[in-house]
Computed example of a mutant assay.
Amino acid sequence: MAEDAPGGPHFRFECEGPAPVCGIDEVGRGPWAGPVVAAAVILDPAAIPDGLNDSKRLSAPRRVELAAVLAARASVSVGIASVAEIETMNILQASFLAMRRAILGLASRPALALVDGNKAPPGLPCACRPVVGGDALVLSIAAASIVAKVARDRMMVTLAQQFPGYGWETNMGYGTRAHQEGLARFGVTPHHRRSFQPIHKMLCETASA
């Protein structure tokens, strides 16, 4: 079992609940384009990879490396909510939907889900405990943050190949200058979140021109 990193996420939360315990995190609430992606991870206490941390604190190559190790050593599942679902139910509910799908995709049903944030997603098939700042505190949530980030980044790189000019391969759909310039030049794609204010404003301006 990997030792807790000083000042980093630890395994104590998992030991407080009925086993098995999964960590859940999502990525992609803020971007202007692309799906929202969640991951659920049940760590094997005897085979926890070294170096797990909040995905934002890791380099992209290190995230990819750890995601591969987690796929081999842990029970891992990814859930996705599409742009159409984000538009239908709003980004928060779509994030919860992706989390439910991630849990349902696990090989074994967890007894407890530790979720990053301050809200428990409704309709989970197990007990749930929200943990504010969980990706920096709880090892299984940190693992989920890594898996979700790597999965979504790969999706956005693929979409960038289909819709070049928006910089999605580097900005992952966030509203960077390159993304704004792509919108001004090429317009809105089917993968843009039309209910998000910047995209909605652009569509309204185009319609009124």
Rank of each mutant, 00 (worst) to 15 (best):
A144F: 00
K119I: 15
A94Q: 03
R101Q: 13
L112G: 00
A144G: 08
M99Y: 08
A148R: 06
E65T: 08
S195K: 11
A184G: 05
D116K: 08
P18D: 14
P35M: 01
H200G: 10
V188L: 09
F163T: 07
G79C: 02
V83K: 05
V37L: 08
L203G: 06
A47V: 04
P9A: 00
E65V: 01
P121H: 08
L52H: 04
G51S: 12
I24H: 03
R101P: 12
T206Q: 15
I141A: 01
A178R: 13
I91A: 05
G182L: 11
T176D: 08
V132A: 14
L139C: 14
F163S: 12
S208K: 11
R185C: 08
P125R: 12
L124N: 08
K56M: 11
A148C: 09
P198A: 05
E3H: 07
G165R: 03
E14P: 01
R194W: 14
P125M: 11
L183A: 00
P31Q: 02
V36H: 00
P35H: 06
A102H: 11
M1K: 08
P35A: 05
D44I: 09
R177T: 14
C126D: 04
A2H: 15
V27W: 07
L124D: 02
E14G: 07
G165D: 10
N171R: 08
R63H: 12
T88R: 15
T170M: 06
A94G: 11
R101M: 14
V37T: 08
L106R: 06
A46V: 12
R101L: 04
E85M: 15
P164S: 00
E205S: 11
L114Q: 01
V131P: 07
M155I: 14
H192R: 03
A5C: 03
A39Q: 02
A148Y: 05
V21C: 00
S195T: 15
C128A: 12
V115D: 01
A113Y: 02
I24T: 07
G105D: 06
F163N: 01
G167D: 09
V69A: 10
T206W: 14
